[in-house]
Nucleic acid binder design. Structure first.
Lengths: 147, 147
DNA sequence: ATAGTCAGTCCATAAGTTAAACCCACTTAA
DNA sequence: TTAAGTGGGTTTAACTTATGGACTGACTAT
């Protein structure tokens, strides 16, 4: 099976992963959320090869997740910024980080955390249901078809 | 840079992705959440090659995300079940699906959704802050070091 | 006996990733 | 005005991973 076949899958997770599911894309986006904007920044941070970085950035721009903003002419150079679609991935990043923090072994003291500006606390994110406002537990969800 | 270098990164997202960040692992886990338990099931569903499926399952078992439970002897065959650590990925899956559903184009009618059993509604998940209970928006979080 | 199930393994090819070198259009320091 | 630096882009060859197909093994059902 070709990976791009998942683009048109009925499952939104498969569709998301058809865009995000390779080795580097989510790492690049993580850097975006931490404020990295330029080719060189990603390269230095990730140690990714330039060829692949070029591909991935082009792909993300193409998918509408990042937008390019020129910050100089002659030659034109771009900042890579998160679009609305890209910023919408913040929730995924937060939960991924929460899982990494609680489920993967490591030295918790040195870890990067997030702070919730509106209440001032270090953020412990959880997933809630928009209909009832309660925390969503794995045992309480069932897959279904949209009505 | 070698990918495994991220295992010990200070960033929990990088650590999570060092385990989950390849082409197939998250797709396999998605299937787990949809109830797939056996080698053949993953294979049929994903069209993944057996060699890679073998590797990925072994890796997930090794990482403590899946556990093997024998369902027959002679020869021994295993179900692959989500451990507590695996089930904790539910939040990531839900937010990934929500992003795929709202941000990636497709035919919404045919899409797989989740239903929240406790309130009966089709689930629209969002991320909330454990400290204040409010929805967490991208603009309200800042990266920091753990205190 | 014969075919089917449910993997696990091996292999040659195909695809993806990498580092290194080189190019380009400038800008800044000497 | 020459030299070095910046912020990339391109090419190439080596290396690593993934793939599909065939083969094996230990059973089970017909």
């Amino acid at each position: 099976m070709r990976w791009s076949d998942f683009e048109s899958a009925d499952c939104p997770i498969a569709r998301a992963l058809s865009i995000l599911g390779d080795r580097w894309t989510l790492m690049i986006l993580r850097d975006c959320f931490f404020g990295v904007q330029r080719f060189d920044g990603f390269q230095a941070n990730l140690g990714i090869s330039r060829t692949i970085l070029r591909d991935r950035l082009a792909h993300l721009v193409n998918a509408g997740i990042l937008v390019q903003r020129p910050y100089q002419d002659r030659p034109v150079r771009y900042d890579y910024l998160l679009s609305a679609k890209g910023k919408a991935l913040n929730s995924v990043m937060l939960m991924l980080g929460e899982w990494g923090r609680t489920a993967v072994d490591g030295q918790p003291e040195t870890q990067v955390r997030h702070r919730h500006q509106t209440c001032g606390h270090v953020l412990t994110p959880y997933v809630a249901c928009a209909a009832c406002g309660e925390e969503v537990l794995a045992k309480d969800v069932r897959a279904t078809r949209a009505a």
